[in-house]
C-alpha cells in the first residue's frame, strides 16, 4: 500500500478521494457557518462580510449548505464502517482525563478512530440531517411559503440548535486536529508514520501491518 515516493515506511490513512472531499467540506462549512452565524446573533453580523454582506449571505447560504451536504454524503458513507462503536470505546471514554492530560500510554488499544471521534461523527450525521431538512423549510425564496407558519417557526429553532451543536462539534474537531501532531498532515498528504499509528490507533496499526504482510 505504501507509496514509494514517500518512503516505504509510511502508512496510508486517508485516500486521495477522501482528502479532497474533506477539504471541500471544510471550505463549504466555513461559508455556510459564517453566513449562518451572522444571522445567529448581532455580535456575529460582521461574519456576513465573508460572502459579500447580509443580502448575499442570505442568497448564498442555502446553496453553500447544500454543496456541503453533497460532499458530506459520500464522505460520511466512507467513514461509516470505521465508526461503529466497539467494547474498548467505553473504556477509552471513561479515561477521558488521561486523554486530555496527554497520558496516552494508559489508554486502551483502539481502531482507526477513537471514541471521541466516533461520537463526534454521529453528532455530525445527526446535525447535517436536521440542518438540511429544517434549512429547506426556512428557505424563504423557494420553499418557506409552502409550509404552515408553525412548521417554519419550529424549523427555525431546529436549524439554529443543529447549527450551534455542529459548530461546537467543529470547534472540538479542529482543536483535536491541531493538538494531535501528524493528523493535519495525514489529511493533507494522506500518510502517517508507523509510530503515529502505533501510538494513537494501535489496533488499526496492526491491521494495516498485517495486510501489508499478505501482499
Amino acid at each position: 500500500m505504501a507509496d514509494k515516493s514517500h518512503g516505504p515506511d509510511l502508512i496510508l490513512r486517508h485516500e486521495p478521494r477522501d482528502r479532497v472531499l474533506h477539504w471541500l467540506i471544510v471550505i463549504a462549512f466555513v461559508g455556510a457557518a459564517a453566513s449562518g452565524m451572522a444571522l445567529f446573533h448581532p455580535a456575529l453580523y460582521w461574519l456576513s462580510n465573508l460572502l459579500g454582506g447580509g443580502r448575499w449571505s442570505v442568497i448564498l447560504h442555502p446553496f453553500v449548505g447544500i454543496a456541503m451536504m453533497l460532499f458530506w454524503v459520500p464522505f460520511a458513507r466512507m467513514a461509516w464502517s470505521e465508526n461503529r462503536l466497539q467494547p474498548y470505546d467505553r473504556r477509552w471514554l471513561s479515561q477521558i482525563g488521561d486523554v486530555v492530560a496527554n497520558r496516552d500510554d494508559r489508554l486502551p488499544d483502539i481502531g482507526k478512530y477513537n471514541a471521541g471521534q466516533k461520537l463526534l461523527y454521529y453528532v455530525m450525521v445527526a446535525c447535517m440531517i436536521v440542518l438540511l431538512l429544517s434549512g429547506i423549510v426556512i428557505w424563504r425564496r423557494y420553499f418557506a411559503a409552502s409550509f404552515p407558519i408553525g412548521v417554519v417557526r419550529l424549523a427555525g429553532v431546529a436549524h439554529a440548535v443543529a447549527a450551534f451543536v455542529l459548530v461546537l462539534g467543529i470547534v472540538v474537531h479542529v482543536s483535536a486536529a491541531v493538538w494531535v501532531k501528524g493528523s493535519i498532515s495525514s489529511m493533507m498528504g494522506g500518510k502517517v508514520t508507523p509510530g503515529w499509528a502505533w501510538k494513537h490507533h494501535r489496533l488499526w496499526f496492526r491491521e494495516r501491518i498485517r495486510s501489508q504482510g499478505t501482499r
Partner: peptide
C-alpha cells in the same frame, strides 16, 4: 481547547513510539 493545548503541549509522536512500532 486553546488553554489545554498550551498547558499540556501537543500530542507528539516520540522516537520511542517509532521504535516500538518498528
Amino acid at each position: 481547547g486553546f488553554v489545554n493545548y498550551v498547558r499540556t503541549g501537543p500530542k507528539e509522536v516520540e522516537p520511542e513510539d517509532e521504535l516500538a512500532a518498528q
